[in-house]
Computed example of a mutant assay.
Amino acid sequence: MADQRQTGFVGAGGPSAPTVFFLSDSTGITAETLGNTLLTQFPGQPLERRTIPFITTVEQALEVVGVIDQLAATGPRPIVFSTAVGQDIRAVLARSRGHFFDLFGSHIGQLEQALHTSASGQPGQAHGVGDAVRYQSRMAAVEYAIEHDDGQSLRALERAELILIAPSRCGKTPTSMYLALQHGILAANFPLVEEDFANLSLPEPLLPFRGKCFGLTSLPVRLSQIRQERRPGSVYASLAQCTYELRNAEDMYRTNHVPYVNSASMSVEEISATVLQRMQLHH
């Protein structure tokens, strides 16, 4: 059978919780992303999630259908999100006794009409190597983000398309990495430390690149909680220190006309989308 990955429970699962299947003839990432996006509209619903990627033969598809049908016979009818590309595999999966949502086939015909051409029918295009140039661009961006994480290197800073600045633990690193991996953005990030607040000017290495800078801030209580996990009981994690750094960082942003966003209640995806929109970065 295809590889399976148990992704755990949401809420108090138990025997009455429907199982949600994310099925794919590739990695399953797209099925998970689209399916989970739809499921966010039902936050109180307990669900068990199972991802089954690399369903590449009809035999494997039949085996998966057997699992779904067995669950349907003994409990709540499963929910099935599929991004399988191959028509034969999609046809088999659609025969399951689950609530079947074909996230690929339901739109591909419309796209073929709109583009006046036939789909390739090749799986793995979204998260495989696919477009070699774009793939290499993303990998180069990841290498750049790693080298320029937390101000470790100032080499080739002129190549940066974006420089994230913020006090420690405001989300610079995960945002830089996400923008690199998902969008191929050459993103550096630079920490703001106490000596940077002696005046309201940007740190000297960033002055030539003011137009590439984007600031992150947070809520003092939230930042203190995050820092306590790293250095419990330290001045670094104290509410007073966090309040001081955030207040001065925001003053710096405003003085230097650096756009910024409060990341306290935002996911890395939301932060990244905000940065892309406000900095008008497109790949």
Rank of each mutant, 00 (worst) to 15 (best):
Asp102Cys: 05
Ala187Cys: 14
Ser82Phe: 01
Ala132Gln: 15
Phe214Glu: 07
Ala73Pro: 02
Ala166Phe: 07
His148Gln: 04
His148Ala: 08
Gly124Gln: 08
Phe9Lys: 10
Gly215Ser: 02
Gly75Ile: 03
Gln152Lys: 14
Leu239Gln: 11
Ala198Leu: 07
Arg5Ser: 09
Glu59Ser: 15
Leu179Val: 09
Gln225Thr: 09
Phe197Ala: 10
Leu39Phe: 11
Pro208His: 11
Leu181Gly: 01
Pro53Val: 03
Leu181Gln: 04
Ala180Gly: 03
Thr19Trp: 05
Lys172Trp: 07
Ile29Ser: 02
Pro78Trp: 06
Arg5Asp: 10
Leu164Cys: 08
Asn36Phe: 02
Ser106Ile: 10
Leu219Asp: 10
Ala140Lys: 15
Leu103Met: 03
Gly11Ser: 09
Phe54His: 12
Arg231Leu: 09
Glu245Ala: 07
Gly211Phe: 03
Ala119Arg: 06
Ile108Pro: 00
Asp149Trp: 02
Ala140Tyr: 06
Gln122Cys: 00
Ser24Gly: 10
Ser16Pro: 01
Ala166His: 02
Met177Thr: 06
Gly28Met: 01
Gly44Lys: 14
Pro191Ile: 05
Ile165Arg: 11
Pro220Gln: 09
Cys170Asn: 11
Glu32Pro: 00
Glu204Asp: 12
Ala249His: 12
Ala73Gly: 01
Gln228Tyr: 00
Gly121Arg: 12
Thr27Tyr: 00
Thr274Phe: 07
Leu181Lys: 02
Gln60Glu: 15
Ser224Leu: 14
